[in-house]
Amino acid sequence: MSSFQTSIGTRSSTMIETSCGYLLQELQMIWNEVGEDQFEREKVLLDLEQECVEVHRKKVDAANTSRTRLHQELAEAEAEFTHLLLSLGERSFPGRPERMVGTLKEQLDSITPALQEMKLRKEERVNQFRAVQGQTQKISAEIAGQSELGDSLLAFKVNDNDLSLKKLEEYQIELQRLHNEKVV
């Protein structure tokens, strides 16, 4: 824990103790003046302690839920990044942080730009695949003597799991083959 965090924790703990201590002293003075019996005093103090524990438990539970959510978001971001890397056929990405260090929020913030860049690369690659597949379909239709394709031009779907340059090159080779066949 950093000295700043320790300082904040000590300061807030001291403030709570001071304010709670002051309020308990005030309650003791009131009880003394009123003449509250010891059994009632202990019962009220026990109730106060239980309420305090419940409030703290709720805050700890909320913080734990937030931590769990951040762990999940980080795991999902890393998994998505890895999936994109594999589907694009790339071994590495220079924008990806080498080691994940720091708080969960810092780790998530460090992978987010690389993940966004990979999403853009995927979108560009999908557009390249669609363009090549569209041209391939158009030339195939022309070779088959179909002048109008209608909705069949929109029928192809890009396989998101293999967007590698090797696969794109295969489609481009097929497009070139069809183009040469059409010309002859």
Rank of each mutant, 00 (worst) to 15 (best):
V34M: 14
V34F: 13
G35Q: 09
G35I: 09
E36T: 04
E36A: 04
D37I: 11
D37C: 04
D37S: 06
D37M: 07
Q38H: 09
F39V: 14
E40R: 12
E40M: 12
R41L: 03
E42L: 09
V44W: 01
V44K: 02
V44H: 02
L46H: 10
L46D: 00
L46E: 07
D47M: 08
L48F: 05
L48S: 15
L48I: 10
L48H: 00
E49L: 08
E51K: 12
V53Q: 14
E54M: 04
E54N: 09
V55K: 08
V55G: 00
V55F: 02
H56I: 11
R57C: 04
R57I: 05
R57F: 10
K58N: 11
D61N: 11
D61L: 14
D61Y: 12
A62W: 08
A63R: 07
A63V: 03
A63L: 15
A63C: 07
N64Q: 14
N64M: 13
N64E: 12
T65E: 15
T65H: 15
T65P: 14
R67E: 09
R67L: 02
T68R: 11
T68Q: 12
R69N: 12
Q72K: 15
Q72Y: 15
Q72E: 07
Q72T: 02
E73R: 08
E73W: 14
E73F: 12
L74I: 06
A75C: 04
A75N: 13
A75F: 12
A77M: 04
E78H: 08
E78V: 07
A79D: 04
A79W: 01
E80K: 07
F81W: 04
F81L: 11
T82W: 10
H83T: 01
H83A: 08
L84T: 03
L84S: 01
L84P: 01
L86I: 01
S87V: 05
S87F: 07
L88N: 03
L88I: 03
L88K: 00
G89D: 15
G89A: 10
S92G: 11
S92Y: 01
F93C: 11
P94T: 13
G95D: 08
G95T: 15
E98Q: 11
R99S: 08
M100T: 00
M100Y: 07
V101A: 10
G102H: 12
G102M: 06
T103W: 15
K105G: 03
E106H: 15
E106F: 12
L108W: 01
D109A: 13
S110H: 05
S110V: 04
S110L: 00
I111D: 10
A114S: 12
Q116P: 14
E117L: 13
M118R: 06
M118D: 01
M118C: 01
L120G: 06
L120S: 08
R121E: 14
E124K: 03
E124T: 09
R125S: 15
R125F: 01
N127L: 11
Q128P: 01
R130G: 00
